[in-house]
């Protein structure tokens, strides 16, 4: 396994770097196509998806990242990162684009505005629990059969997939990087 980049245009970059570091993984900030070339996998952090999408275009990274995704690079997107990877984005800007690398439909702010942001325990496929932090989080509404569900959130109205994977592309509605629990990053890194 080589180094894992963290897209560092905007958002909670530092927490992802710290989590990777805690796992003993070599990591680097990525703000340019040249820096993207130097990493073997990439984390798309939490932040504002519209701002990150805008900065991907102006930095020349939109095409470069698209090519790496097409070539099968492993990517983990959290919150805004999930939105950027999704095939369909509801309640976004009229011109909101995304890579479509993950065959899911997500609704931006699907759990509500900031006053509805929440913490809740999540259940992994093996029955164990990880802490979930949801901040103006996207909600996964549907997925194709190619998308595997790795963690769920159960609430009064049902159970939602919140950590999903399609081959090398991983997406989380929540922010594993905001807690001391390194499970999600560890599972991603172990898959490389």
């Amino acid at each position: 396994m080589g180094s894992v980049g963290v897209l560092a245009l905007q958002g909670d970059v530092r927490e992802h770097l710290a989590t990777l570091s805690a796992l003993g993984v070599e990591s680097a900030r990525v703000r340019t196509p040249g820096e993207l070339d130097a990493v073997d996998a990439l984390v798309l952090p939490g932040g504002e998806s519209t701002a990150i999408a805008h900065l991907l275009v102006t930095s020349g990274l939109r095409e470069a990242l698209g090519e790496r995704l097409a070539a099968g690079m492993a990517v983990l997107g959290t919150c805004a990162g999930l939105i950027l990877l999704a095939r369909e984005v509801l309640d976004g800007r009229a011109d909101q684009w995304s890579y479509g690398a993950l065959e899911v439909s997500v609704r931006r702010n699907g759990y509500g505005r900031q006053i509805a942001s929440f913490e809740a325990p999540l259940e992994l496929a093996d029955g164990s629990s990880v802490p979930g932090v949801f901040i103006r989080a996207p909600r996964i509404l549907s997925r194709s059969s190619a998308v595997e569900v790795l963690a769920t959130y159960t609430h009064a109205d049902g159970t939602d997939p919140v950590l999903v994977r399609q081959g090398p592309v991983w997406g989380a509605s929540f922010h594993p990087e905001l807690t001391a629990d390194t499970t999600v990053h560890r599972l991603f890194v172990e898959s490389l």
Partner: peptide, 26 residues
């Protein structure tokens, strides 16, 4: 197990967390 009883809004983590998401931005 997770259920609606254990869902918490307005925690310090989610309040500070939104500020974390704005970092680097304008």
């Amino acid at each position: 197990m997770s259920d609606s009883q254990t869902t918490r809004t307005g925690s310090t983590l989610v309040k500070r967390g939104l500020a974390d998401m704005l970092r680097g931005g304008v």
